[in-house]
């Protein structure tokens, strides 16, 4: 017989992760940089590889490979009036789905995989960003935080447009 308590715990963990990812998506779409940054743990990796999903970012070129300082600078820059590529800002709407908890412990966190579809409208140009995300989440007290976020673009080996919003 299935252990109902373990099913319930699994459901609760999935719900917590799902709510976290939805919240993250909303803050990113709204360009709420402070709110989005608050979802991160102190030490972090924010990575968008180029060409393939399994490159070594220390040896090969990525599109984005940020530590905390670089990410804070990125968000600060986007918040000024002089990040010309975001004047006007992109209008964003994203869907996050196919959420899978991989190697995940509700008490400590772990790795979560999901798929995303982001519509970007800037002036009269509509761009679709499609791909897979891998989050490494950690539980700090009652809160979930992102320790790592890896974004694997469908177009990682084809030409992309400016990636100047939070993906």
């Amino acid at each position: 017989m299935t252990d109902q308590n373990s099913l319930l715990a699994q459901w609760a963990a999935e719900r917590e992760v799902r709510r976290f990812l939805y919240r993250e998506a909303a803050l990113a779409d709204e360009h709420d940089y402070a709110g989005w940054l608050a979802l991160w743990a102190k030490e972090l990796v924010y990575w968008v590889p180029a060409n393939a999903d399994d490159i070594d970012p220390g040896r090969k070129v990525s599109l984005i490979y940020d530590d905390r300082k670089r990410l804070e600078d990125r968000l600060f820059r986007l918040g000024t009036a002089f990040a010309h590529a975001q004047r006007p800002r992109s209008r964003l709407s994203r869907t996050v789905s196919n959420i899978e908890l991989l190697d995940y412990d509700p008490a400590r966190g772990g790795t979560v995989q999901s798929r995303f579809l982001i519509g970007e409208l800037r002036r009269d140009e509509e761009t679709w960003w499609i791909g897979r995300a891998r989050h490494v989440l950690v539980k700090e007290g009652e809160r979930l935080l992102m320790k790592e976020k890896h974004v694997f673009l469908l177009r990682n080996a084809a030409t992309v447009r400016n990636l100047t919003f939070v993906i």
């Binding site: 090969k60 070129v61 990525s62 984005i64 670089r70 010309h84 004047r87």
Partner: peptide
Amino acid sequence: ARKYRLFSFLEFLGPGGFATPDDVEA
């Protein structure tokens, strides 16, 4: 040195860099 080189490269260059996107916009 390679790590710093790539770190600096990505800081300035490419579609996710701090400079190239503004050139693209210009």
